[in-house]
Design a protein around this nucleic acid. Structure first.
Lengths: 211, 211
DNA sequence: ACCTGAACACCGTTCAAGT
DNA sequence: ACCTGAACACCGTTCAAGT
């Protein structure tokens, strides 16, 4: 949790919270292109203070992204107790796409930052664990095909939201259509052999190298 | 076709071609973040000359994107004569994702530019027409569910490539897995009613407003 | 007409000066 | 310890001077 105020002085802790709140709001409103100056102004702090808390703009964005991923993981963990595993999995995926549909940035994030930043990568791992648990239940219930993993689910969240991006402003809920289509592809009825196996944990770890 | 040299002076026509080739290569290698200076240097022309041919960096990128879309449309048109409509549609989608997998930028493009730039929007329209023709054949052959349109197909191309982005370097052909999963969702066997109808032409036209 | 590089505005990042 | 704004390097874009 980034909002923990470790052993910080009172003013530093306060500024950090102001910064994170301002950054989250500005990123959601204007996407990755917001200037640090704008975020600092909204937080009511100096530009330089931003770089005292986060060495780089990317790291600030990564911190916020990490928080959001962990929030989604918590949602997924709660859904493990739901009655119908297939419905629960779909609800989890819906929450995941909704998260991305709120902001602008989405895929630029997934592309460049989640590879590099260790905290984000750890958060993705926690998320994938929850997704795998949900998927295992759905598989056992016959709601989902055998060859789909939790990592597949996480990666498909970005896919569903991406499909709707070009029309996002005009048709607000369009991503639900593509999530529905993609989810139908996860059902056992239409399952055909896939040409490439699911990514392994080793491959996910290997992706840590910077671009 | 952007590489047409209209009524340009000889040196201008030559520079334009050098510029487009250099830009395409640099964009594929380094993504949307390449500097104009770098592109100009590769083309062997001055920075200012870039802006004589394209008013803005976005317009240069849009020109290249337009070309690539039209190339894909040509591939799709050729596939209209293929024997099996379902296989043809999948081949078309494969070519579409391959196009995006080659470069880096992908989704940033789809998000910000294709909305705004009229030439890109026109190219997307031509592409959607071909996709719709391919889809109609596949529908009639029973290879694809009734409620999927050509525009769905085009939007799903970005989805499939997006899913593989975080692991693109590590597992080169991973997008084939997600294209396969998504294509299984298009089959009639697993079709469930979708919560949102396909985007209409009116909505696609309305999306022309800048962000 | 078209080319060019110097000049401008803007943004991420650094750092000397403050408390 | 931490805050701040001026200063730096870099990039997209403009434009006066060249051919």
């Amino acid at each position: 949790m980034v909002r923990e105020t470790g052993g910080l002085r009172a003013d530093a802790a306060r500024n950090r919270r102001l910064l994170l709140d301002a950054a989250e709001a500005e990123l959601a409103e204007h996407g990755l292109d917001v200037s640090i100056a704008r975020i600092a102004a909204r937080a009511g702090i100096g530009k330089g203070t931003v770089f005292r808390h986060f060495a780089t703009k990317d790291q600030l964005v990564a911190a916020i992204f990490t928080d959001q991923l962990d929030g989604l993981a918590a949602t997924g963990a709660a859904l493990l107790e739901a009655a119908e595993p297939g419905v629960a999995l779909l609800e989890f995926m819906t929450a995941g796409v909704e998260l991305q549909a709120g902001g602008q940035s989405v895929c630029q994030l997934a592309a460049s930052i989640s590879r590099t930043d260790p905290a984000v990568r750890a958060a993705v791992g926690r998320l994938a664990d929850v997704a795998e648990a949900l998927t295992a239940r759905a598989r056992a219930a016959g709601a989902v095909r055998e060859d789909v993993t939790g990592h597949d689910i996480v990666l498909l969240l970005a896919a569903a939201s991406q499909a709707a991006v070009p029309l996002g402003d005009v048709v607000p809920g369009l991503w639900r259509r593509y999530l529905g289509l993609i989810f139908d592809g996860l059902r056992p009825e239409a399952a055909h052999p896939l040409p490439v196996p699911a990514p392994t944990n080793a491959q996910l770890t290997a992706a840590a190298q910077p671009a």
